[in-house]
Measured scan of single mutants.
Amino acid sequence: EEEKYTVIYPYTARDQDEMNLERGAVVEVIQKNLEGWWKIRYQGKEGWAPASYLKKNSG
């Protein structure tokens, strides 16, 4: 089951394993960790993003 989330704040990656996020983008969360960083898939790429910048899509 894919978990789709919408980006609610833009984010600029500060590290090579982080993802740039555009507000309104829909991403797939593939791994959650306890530090508040989630691994996401977006446009065929995978990387880490701050969970607080993502909002779960309803339905």
Rank of each mutant, 00 (worst) to 15 (best):
residue 6 T to S: 10
residue 30 I to H: 03
residue 47 G to A: 08
residue 19 M to V: 14
residue 23 R to M: 10
residue 57 N to K: 09
residue 46 E to N: 10
residue 40 I to V: 06
residue 49 A to L: 12
residue 44 G to H: 04
residue 53 Y to P: 01
residue 55 K to F: 03
residue 5 Y to M: 03
residue 18 E to P: 06
residue 58 S to K: 06
residue 56 K to R: 07
residue 27 V to D: 00
residue 12 T to C: 11
residue 49 A to I: 13
residue 7 V to D: 01
residue 24 G to S: 03
residue 54 L to V: 05
residue 19 M to F: 06
residue 11 Y to T: 09
residue 41 R to W: 06
residue 30 I to V: 15
residue 25 A to I: 06
residue 3 E to M: 09
residue 14 R to A: 14
residue 27 V to E: 00
residue 10 P to R: 10
residue 26 V to F: 04
residue 4 K to N: 14
residue 1 E to W: 04
residue 29 V to M: 01
residue 5 Y to V: 04
residue 10 P to H: 14
residue 35 E to H: 11
residue 54 L to T: 00
residue 43 Q to Y: 07
residue 18 E to A: 06
residue 42 Y to K: 12
residue 18 E to Y: 09
residue 46 E to T: 05
residue 27 V to H: 00
residue 44 G to T: 06
residue 31 Q to Y: 10
residue 19 M to W: 05
residue 18 E to I: 04
residue 37 W to K: 02
residue 5 Y to E: 00
residue 32 K to P: 04
residue 56 K to I: 08
residue 10 P to K: 15
residue 57 N to M: 08
residue 36 G to P: 06
residue 30 I to F: 05
residue 59 G to A: 15
residue 44 G to D: 06
residue 30 I to W: 01
residue 14 R to Q: 15
residue 44 G to L: 02
residue 9 Y to K: 15
residue 46 E to F: 08
residue 59 G to V: 10
residue 7 V to K: 00
residue 12 T to L: 10
residue 52 S to I: 04
residue 17 D to P: 12
residue 36 G to W: 05
residue 44 G to C: 14
residue 12 T to D: 12
residue 41 R to P: 00
residue 9 Y to A: 15
residue 17 D to C: 10
residue 23 R to W: 03
residue 35 E to P: 14
residue 33 N to S: 10
residue 7 V to N: 01
residue 8 I to V: 15
residue 58 S to W: 04
residue 17 D to E: 09
residue 4 K to R: 13
residue 56 K to L: 12
residue 6 T to A: 10
residue 12 T to A: 13
residue 24 G to L: 02
residue 3 E to F: 13
residue 41 R to M: 03
residue 33 N to V: 08
residue 58 S to C: 13
residue 36 G to C: 07
residue 30 I to K: 06
residue 34 L to N: 15
residue 15 D to T: 14
residue 37 W to F: 15
residue 11 Y to S: 03
residue 26 V to I: 08
residue 53 Y to N: 14
residue 10 P to C: 05
residue 25 A to Q: 03
residue 14 R to E: 13
residue 49 A to C: 12
residue 14 R to C: 12
residue 29 V to I: 07
residue 8 I to N: 10
residue 37 W to I: 04
residue 31 Q to M: 06
residue 56 K to F: 09
residue 42 Y to I: 11
residue 41 R to H: 14
residue 15 D to Q: 14
residue 59 G to D: 11
residue 10 P to W: 02
residue 11 Y to M: 06
residue 18 E to C: 05
residue 49 A to K: 00
residue 6 T to E: 13
residue 11 Y to E: 02
residue 34 L to Y: 12
residue 50 P to A: 02
residue 31 Q to K: 05
residue 12 T to E: 05
residue 20 N to K: 08
residue 1 E to P: 01
residue 7 V to A: 14
residue 25 A to G: 04
residue 25 A to V: 08
residue 8 I to P: 01
residue 4 K to I: 15
residue 20 N to A: 12
residue 14 R to M: 07
residue 36 G to Q: 15
residue 42 Y to E: 02
residue 24 G to Y: 03
residue 48 W to D: 02
residue 12 T to N: 12
residue 46 E to G: 02
residue 27 V to Y: 01
residue 27 V to N: 00
residue 43 Q to V: 05
residue 30 I to C: 10
residue 4 K to Y: 13
residue 33 N to I: 02
residue 30 I to A: 07
residue 11 Y to L: 09
residue 50 P to Y: 02
residue 7 V to P: 01
residue 23 R to A: 11
residue 6 T to L: 10
residue 2 E to P: 06
residue 46 E to R: 02
residue 10 P to G: 11
residue 35 E to F: 07
residue 51 A to W: 02
residue 51 A to E: 13
residue 20 N to I: 08
residue 26 V to L: 08
residue 34 L to S: 15
residue 33 N to E: 15
residue 33 N to H: 12
residue 14 R to H: 10
residue 40 I to Y: 03
residue 13 A to Q: 07
residue 12 T to I: 06
residue 5 Y to N: 01
residue 51 A to Y: 04
residue 4 K to A: 09
residue 23 R to D: 13
residue 24 G to C: 02
residue 3 E to D: 06
residue 43 Q to A: 12
residue 54 L to C: 02
residue 37 W to V: 15
residue 54 L to P: 00
residue 58 S to G: 12
residue 1 E to G: 07
residue 56 K to P: 11
residue 26 V to E: 11
residue 1 E to F: 09
residue 12 T to W: 14
residue 53 Y to Q: 13
residue 35 E to N: 14
residue 27 V to T: 01
residue 12 T to K: 09
residue 22 E to M: 09
residue 20 N to S: 08
residue 42 Y to V: 10
residue 51 A to M: 09
residue 23 R to Y: 06
residue 33 N to L: 06
residue 50 P to K: 11
residue 3 E to T: 11
residue 7 V to W: 01
residue 31 Q to I: 09
residue 41 R to T: 07
residue 44 G to R: 02
residue 42 Y to N: 09
residue 36 G to T: 07
residue 29 V to Y: 01
residue 48 W to H: 07
residue 46 E to K: 03
residue 33 N to T: 12
residue 1 E to L: 05
residue 53 Y to E: 02
residue 54 L to K: 00
residue 21 L to H: 01
residue 41 R to I: 11
residue 52 S to M: 04
residue 8 I to D: 10
residue 20 N to D: 12
residue 37 W to R: 13
residue 28 E to Y: 08
residue 53 Y to H: 12
residue 48 W to A: 03
residue 32 K to H: 07
residue 12 T to R: 11
residue 5 Y to Q: 01
residue 59 G to T: 11
residue 48 W to E: 03
residue 7 V to G: 00
residue 14 R to L: 04
residue 56 K to S: 11
residue 51 A to N: 12
residue 59 G to I: 05
residue 26 V to C: 06
residue 29 V to A: 05
residue 28 E to C: 09
residue 8 I to W: 09
residue 19 M to R: 02
residue 24 G to H: 08
residue 13 A to P: 11
residue 47 G to K: 07
residue 56 K to C: 09
residue 11 Y to G: 02
residue 34 L to H: 15
residue 28 E to A: 06
residue 8 I to M: 09
residue 23 R to G: 11
residue 17 D to S: 14
residue 48 W to R: 10
residue 25 A to P: 00
residue 27 V to M: 01
residue 3 E to C: 02
residue 1 E to M: 14
residue 22 E to Y: 07
residue 9 Y to M: 12
residue 9 Y to S: 15
residue 1 E to S: 05
residue 45 K to P: 00
residue 49 A to H: 01
residue 58 S to R: 08
residue 45 K to A: 13
residue 47 G to W: 05
residue 13 A to Y: 03
residue 22 E to N: 08
residue 6 T to H: 12
residue 25 A to L: 05
residue 36 G to R: 10
residue 5 Y to K: 01
residue 43 Q to D: 12
residue 13 A to M: 03
residue 2 E to F: 15
residue 8 I to G: 06
residue 53 Y to I: 12
residue 9 Y to D: 15
residue 45 K to E: 06
residue 22 E to S: 11
residue 2 E to D: 06
residue 35 E to C: 06
residue 35 E to R: 13
residue 34 L to E: 13
residue 51 A to G: 14
residue 16 Q to Y: 05
residue 4 K to P: 07
residue 56 K to T: 04
residue 1 E to N: 11
residue 36 G to V: 09
residue 15 D to C: 10
residue 28 E to P: 01
residue 36 G to E: 13
residue 59 G to Y: 10
residue 56 K to Y: 03
residue 4 K to W: 09
residue 43 Q to E: 14
residue 49 A to W: 02
residue 32 K to V: 03
residue 19 M to G: 02
residue 32 K to L: 02
residue 16 Q to L: 09
residue 46 E to I: 06
residue 15 D to A: 13
residue 57 N to T: 10
residue 55 K to P: 00
residue 2 E to Q: 05
residue 51 A to L: 03
residue 45 K to Q: 10
residue 46 E to C: 10
residue 18 E to M: 05
residue 13 A to F: 04
residue 23 R to N: 12
residue 54 L to N: 00
residue 58 S to Y: 10
residue 57 N to I: 14
residue 35 E to K: 15
residue 29 V to N: 00
residue 50 P to E: 02
residue 36 G to L: 05
residue 5 Y to A: 14
residue 3 E to P: 11
residue 58 S to N: 06
residue 48 W to K: 13
residue 4 K to V: 10
residue 48 W to Y: 13
residue 23 R to L: 10
residue 6 T to F: 09
residue 47 G to N: 02
residue 25 A to Y: 04
residue 17 D to F: 12
residue 16 Q to P: 14
residue 52 S to T: 10
residue 23 R to P: 13
residue 54 L to Q: 00
residue 14 R to I: 06
residue 28 E to I: 07
residue 41 R to D: 02
residue 13 A to W: 04
residue 50 P to C: 04
residue 45 K to Y: 03
residue 9 Y to N: 15
residue 46 E to S: 07
residue 34 L to C: 14
residue 29 V to G: 01
residue 42 Y to W: 13
residue 22 E to V: 09
residue 24 G to M: 01
residue 17 D to T: 11
residue 30 I to G: 02
residue 30 I to Q: 03
residue 28 E to N: 10
residue 34 L to G: 15
residue 16 Q to K: 09
residue 59 G to W: 08
residue 33 N to A: 10
residue 45 K to D: 12
residue 16 Q to V: 12
residue 57 N to V: 10
residue 28 E to T: 11
residue 21 L to K: 00
residue 30 I to N: 02
residue 14 R to N: 08
residue 52 S to K: 15
residue 54 L to W: 01
residue 59 G to K: 15
residue 42 Y to S: 14
residue 22 E to I: 09
residue 52 S to V: 05
residue 36 G to M: 07
